[in-house]
């Protein structure tokens, strides 16, 4: 009978689920990873609640890094952050397949396998959204000098986004607010960035911007309007590159 490992939608949760499934030495079709809250009930299977620990997650991470290599880990890590409910299962399937091929580090080239292909597709999706937000995210300067940016991504991309901005703006105090997943990445000048969870905060603070802010917003809006060449107008092309969902937080479209 098939066993379904139910875990929470976090990296720790999914890696713990994979740990349990891996330990049970079951074959690919005998086990499945499912996410709590995104569960399709099936007949004829065992549902097991996964006990989630850092230890399990670390062990799985080490296992992937050691046997599948850094590149595969990079892809898998991104896939785990995706919004797809089948992601845990795809990762487990990929790991089980990797055991069967001669050189496990080449697993991500094995695109004709459905699970590997799924991981690859999820990775591309998360990586793509991260890349988009690296450009489309907009900071605003608050009264206290902190740079604040709100985003509404589909995937949990904060941990991919924060290192980029920590490198880029090391001497600034900034925070990025993931409104979809109620998470914050917070960076204090000259220090490491941290992730915070929570939905209890004073939203008004984020609306009080510094005095100079309005002027720079106006300059930027003006720039974006002027730079377009009227005789080449092409809103469809613009829409294709910059979908509407990104625009709500972008000042030039406000």
């Amino acid at each position: 009978m098939k066993t379904v490992y139910v875990c929470s939608d976090t990296v720790t949760g999914i890696f713990s689920g994979i740990y349990d499934a891996w330990k049970s030495r079951k074959r690919e079709e005998e086990c499945e990873i499912a996410l709590r809250g995104m569960l399709d009930q099936q007949l004829f299977c065992d549902y097991v609640e996964v006990e989630e620990t850092e230890h399990k997650a670390d062990a799985v991470e080490a296992l992937i890094r050691k046997h599948l290599g850094m590149r595969a880990y990079h892809d898998i890590y991104h896939a785990v952050l995706s919004a797809d409910p089948k992601k845990g299962d795809a990762v487990l399937g990929t790991m089980l397949t990797a055991r069967e091929i001669p050189d496990s580090t080449k697993i991500m080239d094995h695109l004709s396998h459905p699970k590997v292909e799924k991981v690859f597709e999820l990775y591309r999706n998360v990586f793509g959204e991260t890349h988009s937000y690296k450009g489309f995210l907009r900071f605003r300067e608050l009264k206290n000098g902190v740079l604040y940016a709100g985003i509404e991504p589909k995937n949990q991309i904060l941990t991919c986004l924060a290192p980029h901005f920590a490198d880029r703006l090391p001497t600034e105090n900034w925070m990025i607010h993931d409104k979809t997943h109620k998470m914050f990445a917070v960076h204090e000048a000259g220090k490491q960035w941290v992730i915070l969870w929570g939905d209890t905060f004073d939203e008004e603070v984020f609306e009080q911007v510094s005095d100079r802010e309005e002027e720079y917003t106006r300059l930027w809006k003006g720039f974006c309007q002027t730079i377009a060449i009227e005789s080449r107008r092409n809103p469809r092309c613009q829409l294709q590159h910059l979908p509407l969902r990104y625009r709500s937080e972008m000042v030039e479209f406000g």
Partner: peptide
């Protein structure tokens, strides 16, 4: 990195 797209579709 593209930061925005103008009305003529250019980055």
């Amino acid at each position: 990195i593209c930061h925005s797209f103008s009305a003529d579709g250019r980055c």
